[in-house]
Amino acid sequence: MNALAVLLILSCLLILGSSRPRVAIQVVAVQGIFLGLLPILRSWEHLTAGIWIVGISGLVFKGILLPWLMQNVLQRTGIQKETAPYVSFGTSLLLGIVLLALSAWIAVNLQLPADASPVLTAMAMFLVLVGLFLMMSRRKAIMQTLAYLVMENGVYALGVSISLEFPYLVELGILLDIFVGVFLMGNLLFHLDRELQHTDVDKMTELSDLQTISSEPGRDA
């Protein structure tokens, strides 16, 4: 199990250091499969049907459906690679290490109950933080979607690590929500590409108050 955690952490570092969305999608797919396995592995001794369902549905959604969706978008839009992120890849990796340390510290500091695994919690936190960080530091919209997936993976892992189970319906609903969310993002990405001929987030600053506010309030009344 800890090995799984380490693999997940490494996968994150891979995304942090990679400039190609295609690679990132593949990594996210791998992450999804691992995460699907996670609850099954975690409760290996007393497996219930529910856990099977949760694990398998997680695996299917996160490991297969979502990456497939993203792949589809990637192909349709033909986005090649992230060229100039706000934070360079090297620095990102370095920051990734810092984030890892931070999440480890948080996991230890949380004073988790005995049945929760600190390593898994640290991993989950790390995924969330990396997801957030990627979202902020990448320019390509598709990378943001992927980062969102990473973050959601982290949240999912957190739920598993502190052994919290939702009723299946809710669990499925959550997965469905995420799926639809990513589907929508993909759809919008497609439109972005078509409408704006680019998918750079930093060029989407049309909407701000820098123009709409007049310097002398009330003078025009």
């Binding site: 706000y86 979202m135 902020m136 987030v201 930093d202 701000s208 108050d209 820098l210 310097s215 002398e216």
Partner: peptide, 27 residues
């Protein structure tokens, strides 16, 4: 009026339109 406006107009840079910045606020 002028004073208040001058004081708060730099704060208006907050709504700069860049998504990454908004995410940073949340973080």
């Amino acid at each position: 009026f002028r004073l208040i406006n001058n004081r708060i107009s730099p704060l208006r840079q907050m709504q700069h339109g860049n998504l990454s910045g908004y995410l940073l606020y949340i973080a």
